Computed example of a mutant assay.
Amino acid sequence: MIKVICVGTIKERYFKEAAEEYKKRLSRWTKIEEIEIKEEDENKYRNVEMLLKKEAERILKHIKEGQYVVVFDINGTQLSSEEFAELLDKKVSKGEEIVFVIGGSNGLSDAIKKRANLLISFSKLTFPHQLFRILVYEQIYRGFTIIKGIKYHK
């Protein structure tokens, strides 16, 4: 099973449709669960660290002992699509649950990064939150097509 925990929501209809399309495609190979965590209002906190701590508390409630946690972070390791597929294959074939965590506009707290088994960076570029979620789903889908030998990845 794959769980995707996201801080923030998708507002644009076309991004929602893209996410749903990838989740539908993935459903033939794995169960996928998406959890949206409300992004905190910056105006309610004295500093970003306090805001991130509050978001982290809510994220950690959805992560169980023994789950393999992958956090997306600009300072993480960059993987090729084949390496990402290999990671998926190793975990899924063992029946392990993988949890992907996507931070909000303020990033993620150190507590979440420390809980991670792996930090991954897609790029040094900054992406809009809604678009990044689609990129994550697309890469998970691409990974499964590589695993299954389906001609999608070139």
Score class of each variant (00 low, 15 high):
L108Y: 14
I112N: 11
E82C: 00
G103V: 02
S109I: 00
K94I: 08
S109W: 03
K91V: 00
K113C: 05
N117C: 01
N117M: 02
E83K: 14
V99E: 09
E97S: 13
I112H: 06
I102H: 04
K90Y: 12
G104C: 09
E96M: 11
G103W: 07
N117T: 04
E97L: 09
N117H: 07
V101Y: 04
R115D: 04
E86D: 10
F100T: 02
A111N: 05
F100K: 01
K90T: 06
A111W: 00
V99N: 06
V99Q: 03
I102W: 03
E83R: 12
S105Y: 11
D110K: 13
S93E: 12
S93H: 05
E97G: 10
L108C: 04
G104A: 11
V92T: 13
S105G: 14
G103C: 06
V101I: 11
S109T: 01
I102S: 02
E97W: 05
A85W: 12
G107Y: 08
K114C: 05
K114D: 13
R115L: 00
I112K: 10
F100W: 03
N117R: 00
K91F: 03
L108Q: 08
K114F: 09
L88I: 14
L108F: 12
N117G: 08
K90F: 08
E82R: 14
V92I: 15
K114Y: 08
K90D: 03
N106R: 14
E96Y: 06
F84N: 03
G107T: 01
E96S: 12
A116Y: 06
G107V: 01
E97K: 15
G104K: 14
E83W: 01
K91C: 05
I112D: 06
R115H: 00
E83Y: 06
A85S: 08
D89H: 13
G107Q: 10
K94R: 15
G95T: 09
D89N: 12
L87I: 14
E82Q: 13
A85V: 07
A111T: 02
D89I: 00
E86W: 10
G107D: 10
K113R: 13
G103I: 01
I102M: 12
L87T: 09
I112F: 10
G95P: 05
